[in-house]
């Protein structure tokens, strides 16, 4: 019995250690300190600003808005379902590898996240909501991995967006849209160390729309089991060179039906994977 009480005490203490708040703030030690953000089952708007703090707030959905399919139907309240609120229970850990922030799912459908514009942000997520969406605007480097629905990334210097995969379940929703990228082959500086820069976007099912300036010098190395690539840019098919293969295999073991096209004779490498989605390379 004593053991049971002790276990209960520790469970309660652990629960309480996730402090409840309506706004979470954290400050970076250095501008190149990476931030690892874990968010699940929630949409998020992430936007860079001129401040030096990360500010996270929950945004309850607007009540009374019905989906189109519910026209003429009444909502039946499910017993025990808590009303939406703006309470988050964040936890944070900082070590030599960077700052880790975890926001567990709560009674809210969206997070509003403001970050320093210079941030190097890694997001890990399991998004099982059909209409879930993560948007990223005006930051330095973004790396999103997990089970994703829709993703939009605009105005960044570096991006990695990888969703789906068999171990996470085949998804069939959403679209990945990326635009206004500062195309460069300069290394990404993390914790003072230079890291190889390769732009990557990969999905299982989702269509991909990647906007590129017409004068950018870029190579696109891509693989698709069932999708096709379309473009309104002056792209040219090229052989998959050994160099491309090496770059590709730094990130993927499987290189089925690997293709490559170049824009303005190429320079910066971008890897694109979509097993089932259609790939659009758009003129910016």
């Amino acid at each position: 019995m004593k053991i049971s009480i002790t276990i209960c005490f520790f469970i309660c203490a652990y629960s309480l250690s996730f402090a409840q708040t309506s706004q979470f703030r954290a400050k970076l030690n250095r501008s190149d300190e990476p931030v690892y953000l874990r968010i699940d089952q929630v949409s998020a708007d992430i936007i860079g600003y001129d401040g030096d703090e990360i500010i996270i707030e929950a945004v309850p959905s607007v009540t009374g808005v019905k989906p189109a399919a519910a026209a003429g139907l009444d909502e039946i309240i499910l017993p025990g379902r808590p009303k939406e609120d703006n309470i988050i229970k964040p936890s944070m850990r900082e070590d030599t590898s960077g700052l880790s922030i975890n926001i567990p799912p709560g009674n809210f459908s969206k997070l509003s996240i403001r970050v320093p514009k210079s941030i190097i942000l890694f997001i890990r997520t399991d998004m099982n909501l059909i209409n879930g969406k993560i948007t990223v605007n005006n930051i330095n480097s973004i790396d999103i991995e997990g089970t994703l629905a829709s993703v939009e990334v605009h105005n960044v210097t570096n991006f990695v967006v990888q969703g789906g995969g068999w171990h996470q379940g085949s998804r069939a929703t959403g679209k990945v849209i990326i635009s206004d990228v500062k195309w460069t082959d300069a290394p990404v500086i993390i914790n003072g160390e230079p890291h190889h820069r390769t732009y990557i976007v990969g999905t299982t099912n989702s269509d991909i729309e990647l906007s590129i300036p017409a004068d950018a010098k870029a190579n696109f190395i891509f693989s698709s089991d069932y999708g096709k690539a379309y473009s309104n840019l002056d792209v040219k098919a090229q052989d998959v060179s050994e160099e491309f293969m090496i770059d590709y295999k730094r990130f993927y073991h499987r290189a089925l039906a690997l293709k490559s096209i170049s824009l303005n004779n190429g320079k910066v490498n971008t890897i694109i994977n979509s097993s089932y989605g259609t790939i659009y390379l758009k003129k910016e």
């Binding site: 690539a229 309104n232 098919a237 096209i261 659009y280």
Partner: peptide
């Protein structure tokens, strides 16, 4: 069929 945006043409396909 795949939805092709206006002004776009097929860049590559392995199918």
């Amino acid at each position: 069929p795949a939805v092709v945006l206006p002004g776009f043409s097929l860049a590559s396909s392995g199918l």
